[in-house]
Amino acid sequence: MPDAFVLERLNQSITPGVEPDAGLKQQRVYVLPSRQGIFFSCLLLTMLLGAINYNNNMAFMLTFLLASLFLVALIHTYRNLRGLVIRGVMPEPVFAGDPARFRLILDNHGAQQRLGIQIQARRTGAEGLPAPIVTDVPADHWTEVELAILPTRRGRLILPGVTLFTSYPLGLFRAWASFDPGLHCIIYPRPIGALPLPPGQAGGAQCDVGVDNGNHDFSGFRRYYPGDSIRNIAWKAVAREQPLLIKRFDGSGDQELTLSWDDPGLQALSLEEKLSQLCRWLLDADRSGRRYSLVLPAEYSSARGHGPAHREACLKALALFGIAHDRK
């Protein structure tokens, strides 16, 4: 599992002498009248004309009070966003079809609580824009928000940047700040495919772990993970309204698997189907506790291994196969 690490976006562009906690720098917060604000100023103009025509001092006073309130609202709306520090947390990889969850930490160093802060991911290509998330940040506290984006395909899902905006307190102004947290999420291929695991190699009998073919001893249950074969789900447990469980069977020993792109069984499949099938095999192999290696053309070939780190490395290779080079 890759380390979840904290990013401080501003550290990248910081100039000496500026406090690292400077947060959203002042010039980055923009304020403009909202649609209501523009409507409000038209209203003010009408009021002013009325006040002049009737020469009514109370009407003048109200008009000027509202105009002044308009300006004060600008300061407050700006302040509501200024100095807010955002940190992004690198998300854990997900399988295609599951939402990628980008966690952002909004840190408020001020003594003023910030209300009605809205966060929205910027538009990413064809995907629809998720509704903004509304949150408050209490004084001297931080809040965590999670932006869930549904990936459409495997690969690297880059969070295109987020916009924070607020119209608190009066809704007459809208302050916003765009922010690129530099986060991305690795999207593994969707683990689907009906082909059985390729035969094992080296000492040990062949065994289709994951398929209850009647030759193996039942050894217990474990939690369901995405990608598990539905044939091994303990349906009786599901009927008892227990969580999804997987039946485990003891294989007949230490077999080693090579999951290869060039596997004859995969020849008929398209590229994405191949990756999905490999992913399926990989998960099955990992679950059975056997050592396995992944062989991809030209790009990647892992040593034999097992365990979470090995699995993640192999999955990542599948996710990024044929896409931009991993910068790391």
Partner: peptide, 14 residues
């Protein structure tokens, strides 16, 4: 608070 902060500017404009 908002109204109080708006008062000085109102006075000037008035």
């Amino acid at each position: 608070q908002l109204l109080c902060q708006a008062l000085p500017v109102m006075l000037i404009l008035f």
